[in-house]
Write a protein that binds this DNA or RNA. Structure first.
Lengths: 199, 199
DNA sequence: GTCTATATCATGATAGAC
DNA sequence: GTCTATCATGATATAGAC
């Protein structure tokens, strides 16, 4: 494992845990087991390091979605694929969605996000096509708007991960109970959406 | 308007915009139109000021939910009430959910959240009772788990507000188009949930 | 209560020895 | 490439005049 990789891994951990402003270069170098000065040898500034971490994490979050949508499947199957995909992905990386959304809200990153428009905009279009096809085949109700369905799918899967601390408090759950609920949730969301869009 | 109120309002704005670590005492005093030193006269530290702001914002987010659940209404009506409530609330305060969730994820605030367990835990219970009653009356499907339904309701309403920047990029929307979508969403979510839980 | 001035400290970044 | 030492800055917090 090269030093650069060690830095990137440590930086990812720390940025995900504390966000850009809450993260210290010192804690990154400590976690990477190297000297603080070396960070600036590999990455000229905190900003540069952060941007690389954020970019790769963002891509990671989108890649799965992109891939699932590209499959030649029926709409319901695509949805189920996405549910399974994010379910397992977030189990491994619970802090990922909070990190991306939190930092996406930072003014400083809005330019970066706008730069990604060309990469991301096709996705909603692909999903829309799949929805329209399903409507024509009579698989789902005709009054379902694709953009709302798409957004709902993401909401149902991502929000509970995002809001884990609040959820635990509101529902009086321990860490383990929350994990059990998340396991169940996979089946629930599939059933919930199917029921909502079926004729 | 007293100085203390001016400080609290400015602090709320700045904390909501930049989070705890990203917010500077200087920017708070500037926005409040007072001297930096005065902040420490009214609130002994940044931490103390933040905690007060976070607490009131958290209460605000929960109060509506609490109130809606306490009404003597059918389950579907309660759900519609919550949808309308959050829809209008978030239109006025778009940064509110991101702020609360982001800061709820901070380690430092976990103790605070745990302290709120007694206040919050009844809510899920009240919702659960309403769900069970609706099942007995045959208003909804018997296999709907109340905790998942509750979490789904929150997800569908809160996530799109939370993820506005990402949503705009992914769906290639302008600020105005996003707002239009959010207006539509109120009706969509009501219909979506009703369809999902009905017999 | 409100301000100015300052203490104290932590951070990101750089210079330079090895 | 890696480290030590240090700078420059900006932050919270305090002391004290008015």
């Amino acid at each position: 494992m090269t030093t650069e990789e060690k830095i990137l891994e440590a930086a990812r951990d720390e940025f995900m845990l504390n966000g850009y402003s809450g993260c210290r270069m010192r804690s990154i170098s400590d976690k990477a087991g190297i000297n603080k000065g070396l960070l600036h040898y590999y990455f000229k500034s905190k900003d540069a390091l952060f941007l690389q971490v954020f970019d790769s994490t963002f891509q990671e979050l989108m890649a799965g979605l992109r891939n699932a949508l590209a499959q030649d499947l029926h709409l319901i199957e695509k949805i189920e694929l996405i549910v399974d995909l994010y379910s397992t992905h977030f189990k491994k990386n619970p802090g990922l969605p909070a990190f991306v959304l939190q930092e996406a809200n930072r003014d400083q990153n809005s330019e970066f996000l706008n730069h990604k428009r060309k990469n991301m905009s096709p996705m909603a279009g692909i999903f829309h096509t799949a929805v329209e096809q399903a409507k024509e085949k009579g698989e789902i109700r005709a009054d379902i708007k694709s953009e709302h369905l798409f957004l709902s799918l993401l909401s149902l899967m991502i929000f509970p991960v995002l809001a884990k601390p609040m959820t635990c408090v509101m529902m009086n759950k321990t860490e383990e109970e929350h994990q059990t609920m998340m396991e169940e949730r996979r089946a629930f969301v599939k059933q919930f959406i199917k029921q909502a869009i079926q004729l």
